[in-house]
């Protein structure tokens, strides 16, 4: 249980709480990015550098950029923050918060309990081992997720398909 893990874990928890409680959606997303980075540090300290890098590239890099992009397009300003404030009343969040606190307590107790510390041994898994596992015993899962992504791409292409419209008024045809 080293210092880097403790710091990263505290940052991750604080940032995730901030994600839920911020009214401004862009600030919430920034806290989420920070939380992903803290999780990446945890992965790194526990001997999974490849997963740590993927956490940064895929979650903090790609997916959150897409989210920020969409939020910029929607241009959610002060109005949505006020609405959020209205929705997030004490009655709404107090019960889920208690349940989450119980789970957090359990997790902390588990991590710091004696038998866990005794059996702890960090083995660094490098990129090659991950690849061998993915394309060996788990190849079916890889293929299935590839098919799912393919279906997603085809669906997105179908939704986004449109005939090219000529904008110039002299060239515009009446029937498409």
């Amino acid at each position: 249980m080293n210092l880097a893990f403790n710091i990263a874990a505290v940052i991750a928890i604080v940032c995730t709480v901030m994600v839920v409680t911020r009214y401004n959606i862009m600030h919430a997303l920034l806290y989420l990015v920070t939380s992903f980075m803290a999780v990446a540090v945890i992965f790194f300290t526990y001997g999974a550098p490849f997963i740590a890098a993927l956490e940064l590239i895929v979650y903090a890099g790609a997916i959150m950029v897409l989210m920020v992009f969409v939020i910029m397009m929607l241009n959610l300003g002060g109005g949505s923050a006020a609405q959020e404030k209205q929705w997030l009343s004490l009655r709404v969040w107090v019960f889920p918060a208690i349940l989450s606190l119980i789970l957090l307590g359990e997790l902390i107790w588990l991590i710091y309990s004696e038998q866990y510390i005794g059996s702890e041994q960090i083995k660094v898994v490098d990129t090659k081992e991950v690849a061998v596992a993915l394309y060996g015993p788990y190849v079916v899962a890889v293929e299935l997720s590839a098919m799912l992504l393919m279906a997603g791409i085809v669906g997105a292409y179908h939704l986004g398909r449109q005939r090219k419209k000529i904008v110039h008024r002299f060239l515009e045809r009446s029937n498409p």
Binding site: V33, A53, L54, L56, A60, G61, V65, F69, D126, T127
Partner: peptide, 19 residues
Amino acid sequence: NIGLLLFLAFSSLGAYSIM
């Protein structure tokens, strides 16, 4: 041992500054 991946991670994080 993940040097190149680290570069990719930081380059994607760097885009946040512009956005």
